[in-house]
Nucleic acid binder design. Structure first.
Length: 429
RNA sequence: CGGGGAAUAGCUCAGCCUGGUAGAGCGCUGCCUUCGGGAGGCAGAGGCCGGAGGUUCGAGUCCUCUUUCCCCGACCA
């Protein structure tokens, strides 16, 4: 991709609206533009990241056995009357009428819709268990949106819903999502802490929030410092994590006897990026979801739901991975694999080398953002650092004369000269 | 929803108190000189001063209303 033909409105100045670093960098790096309070347009570079995050989430959902579908953003009020939540939800739900005066809403979540769909599609115990998910835009009319996409009103969310015949099965579905979440966040370059969340009437160990530790997080967490030492690649990591104490401050305050000795009790702030819980027959009962069991009796399936804030994750990743020069994308979500800095677009030899470099790597399946603009080197370096592509390759007349280019790793800042061929070979492998 | 701010060029902001022909830096356009970490010079373009009323000979500036955005708090399955 030639930068001279792309849309990348970067800025040196910090926008006055943005308070936290991820929001500032998202605006400065030309990822998003705010169009109304808590509502954002995704510019080309930001959309690429968003799609990459969604791809990682989707991949781990598929691996965990969840099945993707897509439900609409607009829902009928009557659907929500079936569960009783139309009146219970409050002003956070955006409501409106269509031209016929029918009451509609922009979905803040999809329990009702998935329960109705599943009810209408399934008759037999043989159709269970199933976990279904979709990645779709949601709207919650927050009183006070803030922190950019971290607390927007419109947001992209993965929500999964499990249907099981038994409590044991429900727990297995829950566990599968729990594990998938750990893998998802790890694949995004994040370390997530699972925190016990209140479970309401169900009780037990069946609701967790997943938090990314960051000083700008909205939640205050208290947890066993041993959590920091858990090896997430170990197969028993999920069980280990769930056995260790971790609570949000409000819940922690209610705990009569904290099992963690004071010297091991850590306190950090966290960004909630996922929330999973098992709620049994709450919606299946209310909405008449039943299947016929093996013995001929009607069985009410047990359900769980599992959310990941896809757009919020972009903010969380930046909070966790940036420096004074800009964003540092993990390779799994970077909008391009390589940033190519053409130091002298008006130099025929340099231009030819850059075009060949870009074409070769694109052919090898790598994405390259080629800065071919007529601009000074300093500006190009600064732009590349700001937008945070994992690798920068600089080609200029001096190096090219001896057949070398400069390769820079954004995360560490380390640079070295290498032959054009060896750099191509490194990426094209 | 309570409390507090803000709205002037694409961005960051002066100007308002004390009314008199719209400003700076960055960015943008052209030219020159430059060119390996946001250089320098010259010349330009770009504004219904958020909107509506009012006061006044005259309003970016004073008054009233209104809209929007931001911050603190409450809220956030």
């Amino acid at each position: 991709m030639l930068l001279s033909r792309y849309l990348l409105p970067v800025s040196r100045e910090t926008p006055s609206d943005a308070q936290i670093v991820s929001h500032q960098l998202m605006l400065r790096a030309g990822l998003v533009r705010q169009t109304a309070a808590g509502i954002y347009a995704w510019l080309p570079l930001g959309l690429r990241v968003l799609n990459n995050i969604a791809r990682v989430v989707r991949q781990e959902q598929d691996r965990a056995g969840a099945i993707e579908l897509l439900m609409p953003t607009i829902q009928a009020a009557d659907l929500w009357r079936q569960s009783g939540r139309y009146d219970a939800y409050g002003p956070e739900m955006l409501r409106f009428a269509d031209r016929h005066g029918r009451e509609m809403l922009y979905g803040p979540t999809n329990e009702e819709m998935i329960t109705a769909l599943f009810r209408d599609c399934v008759r037999s115990y043989r159709d269970l268990p199933r976990t279904l998910y979709h990645i779709q835009w949601k709207f919650r009319d927050e009183v006070r949106p803030r922190f950019g996409v971290m607390r927007g009103r419109e947001f992209l969310m993965k929500d999964a819903y499990s249907f099981d015949l038994t409590a044991e099965g429900g727990r297995a579905s829950y566990d599968a999502q729990f594990t998938a979440y750990l893998k998802t966040f790890a694949a995004l370059g994040l370390r997530a802490v699972p925190v016990r969340a209140p479970t309401g009437p169900i009780g037990g160990d069946l609701s967790h929030e997943f938090h990314i530790l960051a000083d700008t997080g909205e939640s205050e967490l208290f947890y066993d410092a041993a959590l920091d030492d858990v090896d997430l690649t170990n197969p028993d990591a999920p069980a280990r994590l769930r056995s260790l104490y971790a609570m949000e401050a409000e819940e922690h305050a209610r705990v009569a006897h904290c099992p963690v000795p004071p010297e091991r009790l850590a306190s950090r702030r966290g960004i909630e990026v996922g929330h999973i819980f098992f709620f049994g027959t709450k919606y299946s009962d209310a909405m008449g979801l039943k299947v016929q069991g093996q013995d001929g009796t009607q069985v009410t399936p047990l359900m769980g739901s599992y959310g990941v804030g896809v757009s919020r994750l972009m903010g969380a990743i930046i909070e966790a991975s940036h420096d004074s020069a800009g964003i540092i994308w993990p390779e799994s979500v970077a909008p391009f694999d390589i940033g190519l800095i053409n130091l002298r677009p008006d130099d025929a030899a340099v231009a030819t080398a850059c075009a060949g470099f870009e074409a070769t790597l694109e052919a090898a399946g790598k994405s390259v953002l080629h800065d071919d603009r007529e601009a000074r080197p300093g500006e190009k370096f600064a732009t590349m650092d700001l937008i945070g592509l994992p690798w920068q390759v600089t080609i200029g007349p001096k190096g090219l004369a001896s057949g070398t280019v400069e390769l820079k790793r954004r995360a560490t800042g380390e640079k070295h000269e290498a032959s054009l061929e060896s750099v191509l070979a490194k990426f094209a492998e």
